[in-house]
Computed example of a mutant assay.
Amino acid sequence: MQASEQVQVLQDLIKIRSTNGNEVAVARYLQQLLAAHGIDSQVDEFGDRRANLTAKVGQGTDNRVLGLTGHMDTVAVTDPDSWQHDPFGAEIVDDRVYGRGAADMKSGLAAQVLALIELKEAGQLPTGTVKLIATAGEELGTPGAFRLAKQGAADDLAALVVGEPTGGNVIFAHSGSLNYEVTSIGKAAHSSAPERGINAISGLVKFIEAENKLFSDAPVDPYLGHVQHSVTVIKGGHQVNTIPASAKLQGNIRPTAACDNQEVARRLHHAIDLINHQSSYHLELNIFMDYHPISTDPQSSFVQAALTAAQENFPHPVKTDIINGATDASVFTVDHPDLPVIVLGSDAWQLAHQTDEYTTIPSFLATVKTYQQIVTNFFN
C-alpha cells in the first residue's frame, strides 16, 4: 500500500465514533480491510455494539505465536468546542493527523493491521503465527480483554506487542492500576448539636490522612520506582445544617512488581481496620478495578530486537523506557505472568486523551515498518 493509502486507513478509523463503545463499527471496517487483502478475521459481538476482533497470519511451521494487540475504543470528547480541529474529522495539517484516538490508539491499531497486510502482500509471512487481538472497552473496564482472556486468546502467545502511543520508545514495564472506594457510615444529627452524631466526612478525613503515608515504606521497584497513589473523588453531605450520615471517596493506586496488587490491597484493608478499631468511625472498602503491572527484562532479546527495529525506522531517537499507566496486557498476563510484553506505538503517551489529540504521519508510517520488522525478527 502507498503511504497515502495507509494514512487514509488511519483517517477512516478516527472518523468512526467509538468513544467508550461502538467497537463493532471499527471491527467491521477492519474485517473488510483485512479480507480485501486475503486475511480472514473473526468479529465477536457481545451486545450494545461492543465487539472484539481477532485474526491470524503466518505459515505455522514454527509453533510460536506473537500477539499484536490494540483497543478499538477511545475516551469521550467532553468539550468539543474547545477543539480547534474536528475530533472526528481526521484533519491533516502539515504532518499531523488530528482527532480523538489519533494517538490513543487508532494509530497503533491501524499500524498493526497494516503491518500484517504489508507482510502478506510482500509474500513475507513469518514461519510462525502472528495473532492480531483488537479489543473493546480498554478505556473503561476492559470488558473486551477480559472476554478474550476467558476465551483463551492469550494462552498460546510466546510474546505480546501492545500498540499504545509511546513515540517509538520501547516500554518494557508499566504499573498496574487499582481503583477503590471507601464508604464512611456515620450518624445524622442537627449541626447545632454535632456531638449527637458521627460525621461521616470526618471518617473519610481520617482515611485520607492515613492514605497519605500508606506507601511511605513500600519497596521501590527497580524499573517502576515508587507506588503512585491519590484520592481523586470525594462525595458527602446533603444539607449544610445536617451532620452527614454517609460519605464516599474513591482513589487510584499504581501497583508495581515490588509492591504488587496483593500488597496494596493488604495495606488498604489494614488502614481501614485500624480506623474502625481505634475510632468511632465505620469505614468499608471496595476494590472495583484491579489491574496488574507488567515487567519484561529490558536486556532480553525480545526487547532489544524491538528497540533495534524502532531505532532503524523512527525519524527521531528512541529508547527503552517505562510508563505509569495500565494497558490490556494487565489482563492478558494475569494467568501468564511470565509472558514477555512490550508497549510500542506512534507518538507520545502524553498526547493521549488530550484536546486536539494528534499523531504525526512520519511516526505513524515508522510504526507500521517497525511492527513488520519486529515480526520478521521474532521468528528469525
Rank of each mutant, 00 (worst) to 15 (best):
K150C: 00
P255N: 10
G108W: 10
K187D: 01
P315A: 13
A3R: 14
D273M: 00
T129F: 09
H336G: 01
A134K: 00
P219A: 15
G123W: 12
N22Q: 12
P87V: 11
E138F: 07
V26W: 01
G58Y: 02
E211R: 13
T327M: 04
A258W: 00
A3P: 10
L53K: 09
S279P: 05
R147M: 10
K187C: 05
V9C: 02
V65P: 05
A245G: 15
V130I: 15
E138H: 08
G225E: 04
L344K: 04
I361Q: 09
K319M: 08
K369G: 02
S230E: 11
F288S: 11
P362D: 07
M105L: 12
T183D: 13
T333K: 07
Q59G: 14
G89E: 07
D321W: 14
T359P: 08
I171K: 13
V77W: 07
D79Q: 14
G325N: 15
A271L: 05
R254I: 12
N22G: 05
E312F: 00
A3H: 14
K206D: 04
E181F: 00
P255Q: 11
E312C: 08
G21P: 04
N380Y: 11
E91M: 00
L33T: 09
P293A: 14
L224T: 12
G21L: 12
N22F: 11
S191K: 04
F314Q: 04
D79F: 04
E211M: 15
P165N: 06
A36S: 15
A3W: 09
P317S: 12
V227E: 12
I374Q: 03
D347T: 01
H316V: 06
D321N: 15
T166E: 09
H85K: 11
D81V: 01
D155S: 12
P165I: 04
P222Y: 13
T367E: 12
S295T: 11
M72G: 07
V7P: 08
A257F: 02
T61W: 00
L204P: 09
D356H: 08
I234Y: 03
D335F: 02
N252V: 15
S301F: 07
A3M: 00
P362V: 10
G101C: 01
G325C: 10
S175W: 04
S192H: 07
Q42E: 15
F215I: 10
T74V: 14
I253P: 13
Q278S: 14
P194K: 12
S82N: 08
S246I: 01
L351D: 08
A90W: 06
V264A: 09
L66R: 07
K106I: 04
N199M: 05
E121R: 15
